[in-house]
């Protein structure tokens, strides 16, 4: 079971990333939880300064970019 975190304070880009992450999980057909991290203090704890960012199992995979569903799928393999 993977844990995906989408980091962002709620701007349109973060929402797009959230949707892409959902699509990626569906396409990969795996079990995963997707969590939205929108408190600045929590985002900082992961060491992220540029949102949107994506973390898988607590490890930050991408910063400041809206990944496509295909790109996210690679991190889930």
């Amino acid at each position: 079971m993977k844990k995906i975190q989408v980091l962002g304070t709620g701007c349109p880009k973060c929402k797009t990333l959230m949707a892409n992450a959902e699509a990626a999980v569906e396409a990969a057909g795996i079990e995963a939880t997707i969590e939205k991290v929108d408190q600045i203090a929590d985002i900082m704890k992961l060491g992220v300064m540029i949102t949107p960012a994506l973390a898988v199992d607590g490890e930050v995979k991408s910063v400041g970019k809206v990944l496509s569903a295909d790109e996210i799928k690679k991190f889930l393999a």
Binding site: T9, I40, M44, M49
Partner: peptide
Amino acid sequence: VCSCTILPLFTGIYRMG
């Protein structure tokens, strides 16, 4: 230029940088 990009950066520079 949007404020939702500025605020995390600001907090990051303040607390980590």
